[in-house]
Amino acid sequence: MRRVLITLIVACALSACGFHPRQQIKLSEAIGPMKVETSDPYSPLGIELASALSRSGAEAPADGSASASLKIIGETWTTTPLSLDQFAQVREYLTRYRVDFAMQSADGKPLIEPQSIELSREYTYDANASAGSPAEQELIQRELRRDMQAAILRRIDIVLRNKH
Rank of each mutant, 00 (worst) to 15 (best):
A106R: 13
A30I: 00
Q89L: 10
P61K: 00
L160G: 04
A88K: 02
Q115T: 08
G64Y: 01
T79N: 08
L14H: 05
D147N: 14
S105Y: 09
E118W: 07
Y123H: 08
S116G: 07
Q141I: 00
E136S: 04
T80S: 12
V4L: 11
N128M: 08
P41A: 08
G18W: 10
G32L: 09
I31G: 01
F87L: 11
A106M: 04
D85N: 15
S83E: 03
D107Q: 14
I72V: 10
K163A: 08
I156L: 11
P114A: 05
E37R: 15
T38L: 07
V36R: 04
R3W: 10
R55V: 02
A135R: 08
G46F: 09
G74E: 12
N128A: 05
V36N: 06
G74S: 12
L45S: 06
V90H: 01
S51T: 13
Q104E: 15
A129H: 00
Q89I: 00
C12K: 00
D85T: 08
E113A: 15
S43E: 03
N128D: 12
A52H: 09
L119D: 06
R2F: 15
R22F: 08
A52T: 08
I117P: 05
S67C: 10
A60P: 06
I140M: 04
L82A: 06
R146D: 13
Q86N: 11
I152H: 03
S105A: 15
L49I: 05
V159K: 13
T124I: 09
L153S: 03
S130E: 00
I6M: 09
S105C: 03
A16R: 06
E48I: 10
R91V: 12
L160T: 08
G64S: 03
A68Y: 05
G132H: 03
A60V: 14
P81D: 11
A127W: 06
E29N: 15
A135Y: 02
T124Q: 05
S43K: 10
E138K: 10
R55D: 13
S43R: 11
P41Q: 05
E92P: 01
D40K: 07
S65K: 12
V90T: 07
R2W: 13
L8V: 14
L84T: 00
P114K: 01
R145C: 06
S120H: 11
Q24A: 14
S51E: 13
G64W: 04
Y123R: 01
C17I: 09
G46W: 07
A11C: 10
T7N: 08
N162H: 15
T79F: 00
D100P: 03
S120L: 10
T38C: 13
G18V: 00
P61F: 05
P110Q: 12
Y97R: 02
W77V: 10
Y93K: 00
P44L: 07
E75D: 07
Q86R: 12
L8Q: 04
L53R: 01
Q115K: 14
